[in-house]
């Protein structure tokens, strides 16, 4: 018989959940080294914090980098005893569907929420390094300004041009195969991992350079997503014209890092190739039809 929530506390008492059979289970202290800055290029410095991890039996489920940052925020004192400030970073859903907490962890870009410390720092005294993404201007600490990515989505008209929100019946039918392909592309959360890892994608602080510099895999893949939709395809020409131009599909260097780091495992390189074909055919057609 249930007496009260205190006996079975939803938030705190989750005995046994943490240990999933893998990784270390003992209590330990790890070090978290963070590249901080007051704003882009200003007062850039490294700070190191200690984070105490309870043993598996004491834990409320798996511990990730966000939990470490939360612990640091509640008592921001560096290893050398200096009182610092909570580390600034973006976060949202904490289950890897919003894309907010993207950062460079131990040298590679990924979401901090799905980065479990048992995988990254299995032993006492292990070090995890956190850096902001390098392809975007730093707002503060680990928070970067990714607005360029959203602007790029607008440049390829990443939407289906519907006739308003009126009741106009169903949308176009599609086969389960088409749906599955589109669904995969549609899970892109604009996190920017593919851009950070791309050797062709460059940091641009000057907005006037946005158009000329490589647009990156995410946006190319989104253009493909909308071209695949019956109504979306009515704007195919505009999208292909944009992608055929400077900073578009031709700037891809085919390192294929994008597909390796994509947390949603979106077939980005297939999108790039598919858009490569579309752009090629589009330009050939244009050449011969004169339109």
């Amino acid at each position: 018989m249930i007496q009260s929530n205190d006996d079975t506390d939803l938030a705190t008492d989750t005995r046994g959940h943490a240990a999933n059979g893998k990784g270390p289970s003992g209590a330990r202290t790890i070090r978290v080294r963070i590249k901080r800055a007051d704003s882009h290029g200003k007062n850039v410095r490294w700070e190191e914090f200690k984070v105490d991890l309870p043993s598996a039996g004491e834990r409320d489920g798996a511990i990730n980098v966000i939990a470490c940052l939360q612990q640091i925020a509640s008592n921001p004192v560096t290893v050398d005893g200096t009182r610092s400030t909570p580390v600034t970073y973006e976060s949202g859903c904490l289950e890897e569907v919003c894309g907010s907490c993207t950062m460079v962890i131990n040298g590679k870009v990924r979401q901090a929420c799905s980065c479990l410390v048992d995988d990254y720092a299995p032993n006492d005294g292990d070090l995890i390094t956190l850096e902001p993404m390098s392809k975007f201007p730093v707002v503060r600490d680990l928070w970067v300004d990714r607005s360029r990515l959203f602007k790029a989505l607008a440049s390829v008209k990443a939407w289906v041009p519907i006739d308003g929100t009126y009741d106009l019946g169903e949308g176009p039918e599609e086969t389960p195969d088409e749906q599955q392909t589109r669904y995969k592309l549609s899970t892109c959360m604009s996190c920017g991992c593919c851009l950070e890892a791309c050797p062709q994608y460059t940091l641009e602080e000057d907005e006037s350079k946005f158009d000329e510099s490589f647009v990156g895999a995410a946006v190319i893949s989104q253009a493909r997503y909308f071209n695949m939709h019956e109504t979306g395809a009515t704007m195919k020409k505009q999208r292909l014209d944009t992608l055929a131009g400077p900073g578009g599909i031709n700037n891809c260097g085919n390192s294929q890092n994008c597909v390796k780091v994509c947390p949603k495992e979106i077939p980005l390189t297939e999108s790039i190739a598919a858009m490569g074909r579309s752009v090629t055919l589009h330009r050939i057609k244009e050449f011969f039809s004169g339109r």
Binding site: I249, N250, C252, N254, P267, T269, E270, I272, A273, A274, M275, G276, R277, S278, V279, T280, L281
Partner: peptide, 8 residues
């Protein structure tokens, strides 16, 4: 890839 010959 660039020319769109190999996609998958």
């Amino acid at each position: 890839i660039t020319w769109g010959v190999t996609i998958t």
